[in-house]
Amino acid sequence: MKQISGNESILDNPMVDIATYLFLEDIADKQGAAGMNNYLMSLAYSLARSMPEEEYTDWDSFVDAIVKGESILSAFEKVNSISKYCMVTVESPFLRGWKEYTKRIGEFPRIHKEVAEYYNSRITPTAIETGDIIIQTYRKAAAEKITVDGKKVKVAHIATVSPDGSKKIAPDEWLPILLEKAQISKTQLNMILRNNAAVWIVYPSQ
């Protein structure tokens, strides 16, 4: 029996997912891309704040907890470990909502990408649509609640693939540093992106 803590056995209702997207679009209509971006980041912070703190004695047990879905960093997504610090998200936690939206409402509105572009220009340039803003902000905020061997951990994003197949990779000036930390090459990154939704690193702060 699969552990329930990963939430994989409880599927969210499509109406709730679509209602959330429409609510966000409503905010964008009134407050524009900047307002929507603020809302998304605010809700991700608020979600991370409500999660419990975690502490691990060593890095291996921390990575093990992430992969098993026991850490707050993998509470909403299935995460695999590629190397010591490099993690991959197998499937976007927003895929179901995206599929239901395109099935029942129609084409995913352009505003979701516009807000992501706003986020990319101001925060971290690895988001493709609104869901990425939520999950990336959440990962960073949740990481602040974790200590491993007495040190805080940090998260940085390398690449994202959207449900429609479009990719967003960290800018060229950042990429070598991120790949070095991840212990993968650029070719390996492209290989990983074929069947994963996101590549990110989690590492101890200095």
Partner: peptide, 13 residues
Amino acid sequence: MLDIALVSLIQDM
């Protein structure tokens, strides 16, 4: 995750 994000937004909102 979207639904849980919505719930966390309710309090905030």
